[in-house]
Simulated scan of single mutants.
Amino acid sequence: MKKEQVLARMKEECLVAVVRAKNYEQGEKVVEAIIDGGIHFIELTMTMDEGNPVEFIRMMSDKYRTNDKIVIGAGTVLDPETARGCILSGASYIVSPGLNLETIKLCNRYRVPVLPGVMTPTEAITALEAGCDVIKIFPGNILGPAAISSFKGPLPQGEFMPSGGVDVDNVDQWIQAGAYAVGTGSSLTKGAKTGDFAAVTSKAQEFVAAVAAARGK
Results as ranks from 00 to 15, higher is better:
66 T>F: 08
121 P>G: 06
23 N>E: 00
141 N>A: 06
66 T>W: 09
152 K>S: 04
38 G>C: 08
23 N>S: 00
125 I>V: 14
38 G>K: 06
178 G>S: 04
96 S>L: 04
117 G>K: 09
21 A>Q: 04
172 D>N: 12
67 N>D: 15
82 T>C: 04
37 G>N: 10
25 E>Q: 14
80 P>H: 07
207 F>H: 01
126 T>P: 02
16 V>R: 06
195 G>W: 02
177 A>D: 14
133 D>E: 14
90 G>H: 01
78 L>T: 03
195 G>P: 06
181 A>I: 07
45 T>E: 06
50 E>K: 11
26 Q>P: 00
7 L>M: 11
81 E>A: 11
73 G>P: 03
126 T>S: 09
102 E>S: 04
74 A>S: 09
153 G>E: 15
182 V>H: 10
55 E>I: 00
134 V>P: 04
200 V>K: 03
54 V>A: 04
109 R>K: 14
48 M>W: 00
122 T>E: 12
186 S>Y: 13
34 I>V: 15
133 D>N: 14
150 S>T: 10
153 G>R: 15
141 N>I: 06
197 F>Y: 15
93 Y>A: 06
205 Q>L: 05
140 G>H: 08
70 I>W: 03
120 T>M: 07
6 V>W: 02
42 I>W: 00
30 V>P: 01
188 L>R: 02
133 D>C: 10
198 A>E: 14
84 R>E: 14
67 N>E: 14
9 R>V: 02
73 G>S: 05
185 G>R: 09
10 M>E: 03
30 V>K: 02
130 A>L: 05
68 D>W: 03
146 A>P: 00
65 R>E: 12
106 L>M: 15
214 A>E: 14
89 S>N: 10
104 I>Y: 03
210 A>T: 12
51 G>T: 02
6 V>K: 08
8 A>H: 13
43 E>R: 05
159 E>G: 08
143 L>H: 13
